[in-house]
Amino acid sequence: MSNKVECRDVREMLERFLDGELSPQEHDRVRNELAHCQECRQQLDRLQKLRALIREVYVEEVRRVNLDAVLPGVMTRIQNQERGWKERILAWLERYQIGLVSPAAPLGVAAALAAAVIAGTLIYATSGPTEGPDVGKARVEVAADDPAAPAEAESGTMLAGAQGTAADVLVQDASANRRSAHEEKPFKRNECYVTYYQVDSGTVIVDVDPDGDAPAVVWHFEGEGSPEPGEDNRI
């Protein structure tokens, strides 16, 4: 026979009963109370309905989602990470067909490093003579506290340019001059995102992800050949 004390105690156990987290003795106690107490049965019924509703919505929704893109996406991103920064930056430029339309005067090293401190990471800047309307040279400075970077960041390495840019890429280790809040929090991830690209000054600022999650991405793209805001900016 149900009584108020037993009813109150059992109510407190109903969730664990539903979740299968009771001892055999507690389980029997709840079952016994449920056989006699309508209020306890109603509360259990509410909990069961809530579970059913949540499952119905999410399980059904997710069952119908096409996840075919997940595996290729993962494998591409793994492959990208293994390519190294300079190849990834060039591939990114190529993907969006960014031509260095009006390469400006070389960006000073001091300014470049200052920008690196602000952005926390990489700089891609035009430099050198202009060879045509879509041609420029590029300098990529790689923050060396990214463990993935130094292996790729051989000072003075010249690369063939990305299609449409014919850019020479000079990768330099900027670690010696690097000062930023990230110093105490070394980059551990091999992800980077373009956060700023300005055709006029020929500058692309790339944010290497310090936390393994997408950084605050700021789109300030100007000029011809810039990607649309909202496009995947991942390198």
Partner: peptide, 29 residues
Amino acid sequence: YQRKVYMIVYSMISNHQEAMDKTQEVFLR
């Protein structure tokens, strides 16, 4: 595991595109 991971992520961030991206990020990690 992609569907289970997606379900957790989607139910937490309620946006399909972001959930797809985060699901990939889970497997990257």
